[in-house]
């Protein structure tokens, strides 16, 4: 038609960019083994990892290292690194999927109330004096209940479904926030209230293998369908009418995305507490570097989100003499980025 500078444009080398992202993540993982109060240099960590892996396959190889090094690496840092990678990936993919589904780049994974529900669930468990496993379970089901409630309300309401879903999410979130405030009010101020407050800030400080083993299957259950449906999510971004005219059962596809994204968000929040901004910001960076196609956005969000949260967690561990809750740090980083997105209109 008209002459356009967009003619014959070459696509960027996405494979190279993805490779760089992967290398960056691997570097980040090894750096994470080394940083912290207990000094453990990268080469020792790498050697320990190597021997550990070999010893799993060959019983003749025995770990002959300083016990403290071993314990710090395998019982403290490794589960924490894996948890950071999993939670970062899960929140970012959930955010990316929701942004596509709601056709809005300013949507975050807790749009349907998952965080508010999880926060309420955790607070109830803390108020009842339950242990950390129960807090995790209460938080997880609290998150599921909130999203289930929001989805139910949106189904019963008339009007455009994505709009009613957003409104139902706001409604359910504020309900659970009110519940949370009430629990804070009645909680005892010496133990329970600080515990609730600290939980809500979000932290990876107490990650153990138990957390990783609990959260891994749920995250995989949420992630795998989104991976398989990643091209179809493109079609949801067109909106209800266009997607239906292309022959897509939008109701079912949307439900699948909600179930997966909710599992990802609720599982993450239940072990770490509320970590905001990651799920909002990472999909944006992914789109800036890799375009809008969800065939790329989903895998890129996994790697980028994992790498980002791990890097932020390293900062949380090393910035001050006491550990800064990661939820605070992500907000400090996320808020200016969000401002930038608002100013530029959120389009790339």
């Amino acid at each position: 038609m008209t002459d356009n500078s967009a003619d014959d444009r070459k696509l960027p080398n996405y494979k190279l960019r993805f490779l760089i992202l992967l290398i960056l993540t691997v570097i980040c993982i090894f750096v994470s083994f080394a940083v912290g109060r207990f000094s453990l240099d990268i080469s020792t960590a790498a050697a320990l990892m190597y021997v550990k892996i070999v010893s799993m396959f060959d019983p003749h190889v025995v770990l002959a290292q300083n016990y403290a090094d071993y314990s710090v690496l395998f019982n403290i840092r490794l589960p924490r690194v894996i948890a950071a990678l999993l939670v970062g990936a899960a929140l970012s993919v959930a955010g990316a999927a929701y942004q596509g589904m709601f056709q809005n780049p300013l949507v975050s994974p807790d749009i349907l109330g998952a965080s508010a529900g999880a926060g309420f669930g955790a607070a109830v468990a803390i108020l009842l004096g339950l242990g950390s496993t129960d807090i995790m379970i209460f938080a997880f089901f609290g998150g599921l209940a909130a999203v289930g409630g929001a989805y139910g309300v949106s189904l019963l309401s008339k009007g455009p479904s994505t709009l009613s879903m957003v409104l139902a999410g706001i409604l359910v979130s504020s309900l659970f926030s009110a519940g949370l405030s009430y629990i804070k009010l009645v909680a005892d101020t010496t133990n329970e209230l600080p515990a609730i407050t600290y939980w809500l800030m979000g932290s990876l400080a107490s990650m153990t293998w138990m957390h990783v083993i609990y959260v891994l299957p749920i995250i995989l259950i949420g992630l795998i369908p989104l991976f398989l449906l990643k091209w179809r999510i493109n079609i949801l971004t067109l909106g209800e009418d266009e997607a239906r005219s292309l022959g897509v059962n939008t109701g079912l596809l949307r439900l699948a995305v909600i179930v997966c994204a909710t599992l990802l968000t609720a599982a993450s929040v239940s072990i770490t507490g509320v970590i905001g901004w990651v799920g909002l910001v990472i999909p944006h960076f992914a789109r800036m570097a890799f375009g809008c196609d969800y065939r790329r956005i989903i895998p890129v969000s996994v790697v980028m989100g994992a790498c980002f949260l791990l890097a932020v967690d390293d900062c949380a561990r090393t910035m001050a003499t006491i550990e800064v809750p990661i939820g605070i740090l992500t907000a400090f980083l996320g808020a200016p980025i969000f401002a930038y997105l608002l100013i530029t209109g959120g389009r790339h």
């Binding site: 056709q103 091209w231 493109n234 079609i235 022959g247 375009g291 809008c292 389009r347």
Partner: peptide, 19 residues
């Protein structure tokens, strides 16, 4: 559009019922 798809990717979406 909200999301800036490449034109080819947009056209490919027309084949949803064949994939």
């Amino acid at each position: 559009p909200v999301f800036n798809f490449a034109v080819l990717d947009l056209v490919l979406m027309g084949m949803t019922n064949q994939i």
